[in-house]
Amino acid sequence: MRNNHLGTAPGSKFERWGPLLTIAGALLLWEGCSRTDLITSTFFPAPSTIFAVIMGLLLDGQIATHAGVTLARVLAGFTLGGGAGLILGLAMGASPRLHAQIDPLVALVHPTPKIAALPLILVIFGIGEAPKLVLAALGAFFPILISTVAGVQQIPPTYFEVARSYGAGPLNLFRRVVWPGSLPFLFTGARLAINVALVLTIAAELVVGQSGLGQRTWFAWQTMRIPEVYAWLAVTSVAGATLSFLLGGLAKICMPWEHIRAVKRR
């Protein structure tokens, strides 16, 4: 069995519980400093105080409502922008001409911080649901587009030759080679994209709207309820981790061969 530099084997008790101990220790330190007012409890309320606020928000249904609203926006934007990125990415991966035509534009637009376009988007799309959707979609579009193009292009040419030698037409080439061959890249892109979509949705909610995790965080700040600001921040971070976790699970189901490969490498 492989040992790390501490001489502990992977999967040993220390490796499994060590990270949790670190987190528990940090929380305890924070709790102690806050309670003794070593750090200002006004700005750094004790974790137990924040936890009580979270429980309150959970019980009166606020978390369910607002997390639901935000997640629905994220998923709508992700589907819309990601879907468009996927379709264009597959087309660009398949056609070098289309790739040459569009790639410079992508290289130009992609590095622009999308959040900087929010004022413009508000002018064009008003202050309803539309601007949040557009911003999240825009954020999800590029990571999916770029990873899909890379995913199609990295498929070894041999696989196309094998498929063609057995008489595969364009549809079968897509179904049996292009799609499964680019899937690992696609999932990597999707994980990046859903995170960007969440960040942009929260950012838009901070500025406009009556609901959602971002709006609640901003509202709590405006009314100087600092523990609640922390509470919404924690909920947002759990929401993001959940999305990432769900995508990871979906990847395992969709790509059993990758999962088995990863287990073998361990």
């Binding site: 041999t158 696989y159 030759e161 094998v162 030698s165 057995y166 499964p180 061959g181 790509m255």
Partner: peptide
């Protein structure tokens, strides 16, 4: 197809 091809590096689909 009249022919089947066996490739140098087996060419099996990893997926």
């Amino acid at each position: 197809p009249r022919s089947a091809f066996v490739f140098q590096d087996h060419g099996l689909f990893p997926w």
